[in-house]
Structures are given as structure tokens and as C-alpha cells.
Design a protein around this nucleic acid. Structure first.
Length: 385
DNA sequence: TCTGGGGTCCTAGGACCC
DNA sequence: TCTGGGGTCCTAGGACCC
């Protein structure tokens, strides 16, 4: 049976955090603006009532750029870049602190606005969603335009939408006409619009895979689509090489998943300077305990219990190690988490300076359900060993 | 002056059970 | 003595994403 063609939209808010900040500081519109580097560097009110903004050149620390406006991107400043490096490229750019509460508020506003017009939404983080429009009838472009208008009416922000037969293509498609874009793509457009792009535009091909593909002379998605399957399999293994070929040919049958439960909750912190396990013992202990306390608060606020407690350490040389420990009972208690995390920590040799410490709780269950007692597993009913 | 913080998924080996 | 084949859980690391 021929399966009906799906219509999947990917909606991506344009330069989301920076755009939310511009709602509050409209006078910065048109300028290179960078958001990131923690919550210090608030604009200061001057005696004459005007605001004095921080500039990128004033920044000192280990933060990275969270978002930049298109004007800053034109100067080479992109998200993920170290702030000190960004400051070299664009010392006069305005620097604003991150305000996640504001971004979460605007995230809820735009998602609610979309849900009123098209309810089959997959959440992909604070600033993007997939929408299944397969049953939306004939005029999908008109509906997509109404979604864009509704998002703008609810938030004052613009977004870009790509519509394609699957999530993989829709995701690439939403980027083709940013900002404020609306792009439709059919299977017939793959050769002309997708194949010329770099392999890194495929969601799931990251820096490591890009590098390996480049060594094989494979740069564009067309190169990958036409690559020798045996060559790919030698270099990437069977599963990943087969996925690479399907992706390059625009094939993807993943459904739009409209609800999911978290798998883990964590807190981590990079120190302002690298800390020594012995010399800075008191400071490290305080940070460690504080992470456990905040994590416990997150679990309690969200109503989850977790059975596995894990820690993450990053050394000054950026090498990262993890340890975890599964408890007999699920917990959200700070002291229990702190004790388990402490046991994990004892299993690591601390002979180098540290730059990061993290604590994670996984194997989560909802607190109400756990309180009702463990459900009888189906396997138990048929157990006969 | 390198490289945040919060996540997901995958792989792979060993323990352990039947 | 040596010999199996599943299956699940736990742990560690890594790639990737927003």
C-alpha cells in the first residue's frame, strides 16, 4: 500500500533569546547584540535616565555566546563561541545577560498560540517545534502563514517555518529562508535545494562526522547521497552508515512525538578558575553540596524521584569523566543525593585541577505513581522460573 | 583568551539470571 | 573437566542537539 505523503512543519524562532531581549530594549534593534555569559552585566541606569549597556570588550570569564543578532552574526559571532573570542571579533557589540525566565515565558506563549491552530506538536526545546499538518487539508501554506501570524501576535517575534514530507527535511527547510521565512519542499526539490548543502546541515551529523566525511572527500549532501555504501560502512559502521545514506536521500520516517517524560535531571557548574581537589577543598565541597541541593529542589518542584545518581567531572584539560550509582529506592532528597554523589566522587582519582562539577539523577519516576506503590509488572504475571 | 548548561540516544562490556 | 544462548541491568564514555 502506498502510504500517504506526510506534511511536517518545523518551526524555529528567529534568534530567539536575542529577539526577546530586543522587545525590552527596542533601541538596540539593528545593532550587533550578544546574549550570554551569565546574569551579570545588567544594563545600568545613568543619572540622566538613559541606559548604559555593557560591551563585549568589557567581558572577562569563561562564558559562551548563547545567541547573537543577525548583525552580530555578520561579524562572525555565533552561538557556542567563547565570549572572549567573540569580543575579539566584535568588541563594540552590546552584551546582555541571559534571562531564562523571560525566554520560557515567551516559549509558552508561542507554543500555546500554535497549539490553537495545530495541536500535533513535538517540543524540541525552548525555541523550536515540529508540527504534524498531514491532516490539515489542502491549504497547508495558508495555515502555515496563519501560524506565523499567530506567533507574532502572541509574542511580537518572528519565526521561520519549513514544510516537507518528514522531520529531517522540514528541519533543513526551515533554515533556507531565515529570518521570517516560510518554505515548502517536496521530494522533487531534494536534488536542487538539499543536495547542494553541506552535510553539516543534516540534523545528526555533527563536528566529528563532518570531519570524517571530509577526509573521504564527502562535503555536500549530494556527495554523501552518491557515496559508496561499502566505503561508508568501513568508516562509520553499519547502523550509522545506513542512516547517513537514507538521510542524504531525504528519507526519514520518524513520527512527530507529542508527549514525552524526562529521562534525567541535572545541574552542573563551570568554575571561574580551575580548582584543586586539596587546595580548594572547602570551596569544592560547598559547590558540590549546593548542586545537590538545587537538583533536589528541581526534582521536588517537577514531582520526580530518581533511582540513579551520577556525577560529572571535567578536568582542566577538558577531559570528562562520569560515575554513577543506582540506589535501592528512588529519591528526591538532597542529603541522599549528596551521599550517593559523594560515593561516586570517591571512585575518581583527583590528581589534576578541575573546571566543572555536575550532579545528575536518572531512572526517573513520577512521585505520585511511586507513592501508590510499584505497579505489578506484566512479566510477573507470567513468571514461571 | 579556547570551549556553558541542560538534555537525548547509542555502544559496549560485564554481572547476573534462567 | 567444558559447554550454550537469551535477556536485562548497570556502568562509562561519546556524539549530538538546543
Amino acid at each position: 500500500m502506498l502510504s500517504p505523503v506526510r506534511r511536517i512543519a518545523h518551526l524555529d524562532m528567529d534568534a530567539f533569546y536575542a529577539s526577546v531581549e530586543l522587545l525590552r530594549y527596542p533601541e538596540l534593534r539593528g545593532q550587533p547584540v550578544v546574549v550570554g555569559g551569565g546574569s551579570k552585566h545588567q544594563p545600568e541606569v545613568q543619572p540622566d535616565g538613559s541606559l548604559r549597556y555593557f560591551r563585549l570588550r568589557d567581558y572577562v570569564g569563561r562564558g559562551v555566546v548563547t545567541t547573537s543578532t543577525y548583525e552580530a552574526r555578520a561579524l562572525g559571532v555565533f552561538s557556542g563561541m567563547g565570549m572572549m573570542k567573540a569580543a575579539k571579533l566584535s568588541p563594540d557589540a552590546i552584551l546582555l545577560p541571559t534571562d531564562f525566565d523571560a525566554y520560557r515565558r515567551h516559549s509558552r506563549l508561542f507554543k500555546n498560540a500554535v497549539a490553537e491552530l495545530a495541536p500535533l506538536i513535538e517540543d524540541r526545546g525552548i525555541d523550536e517545534i515540529y508540527i504534524d499538518l498531514s491532516d490539515a487539508g489542502d491549504d497547508v501554506p495558508e495555515l502555515a502563514q496563519r501560524i506565523k501570524d499567530a506567533v507574532n501576535a502572541a509574542t511580537g517575534l518572528t519565526c521561520s517555518i519549513g514544510i516537507a514530507p518528514n522531520k529531517l527535511l522540514a528541519k533543513i527547510c526551515s533554515e533556507l529562508d531565515k529570518p521570517d521565512g516560510l518554505t515548502l519542499l517536496t521530494r522533487e526539490d531534494i536534488a536542487t535545494r538539499i543536495w547542494p548543502l553541506s552535510v553539516k546541515k543534516i540534523n545528526g551529523i555533527g563536528p566529528k562526522a563532518v570531519e570524517k566525511l571530509a577526509l573521504l572527500g564527502l562535503h555536500s549532501i549530494a556527495d554523501l547521497a552518491k557515496a559508496d555504501p561499502a566505503l561508508l560502512q568501513e568508516n562509520f559502521g553499519r547502523t550509522y552508515s545506513e542512516w547517513l545514506l537514507r538521510a542524504a536521500n531525504g528519507e526519514d520516517n520518524r513520527p512527530v512525538v507529542t508527549s514525552s517524560e524526562p529521562k534525567s535531571i541535572s545541574r552542573e557548574s563551570t568554575f571561574e578558575r580551575d580548582l584543586h581537589a586539596k587546595l580548594d577543598r572547602n570551596e569544592l565541597t560547598a559547590i558540590f553540596t549546593n548542586l545537590c541541593t538545587r537538583l533536589s529542589g528541581d526534582l521536588q518542584r517537577k514531582g520526580y524521584l530518581g533511582t540513579t545518581v551520577g556525577i560529572k567531572l571535567r578536568f582542566a584539560d577538558f577531559r570528562t569523566v562520569t560515575r554513577d550509582l543506582t540506589l535501592t529506592d528512588a529519591t528526591d532528597d538532597a542529603a541522599v543525593i549528596r551521599r550517593a554523589a559523594g560515593e561516586c566522587l570517591r571512585r575518581i582519582t583527583l590528581d589534576r585541577r578541575l573546571r566543572l562539577l555536575g550532579v545528575r539523577v536518572s531512572a526517573l519516576s513520577k512521585k505520585e505513581e511511586a507513592a501508590a506503590g510499584p505497579a505489578l509488572m506484566q512479566g510477573d504475571l507470567f513468571r514461571n522460573d
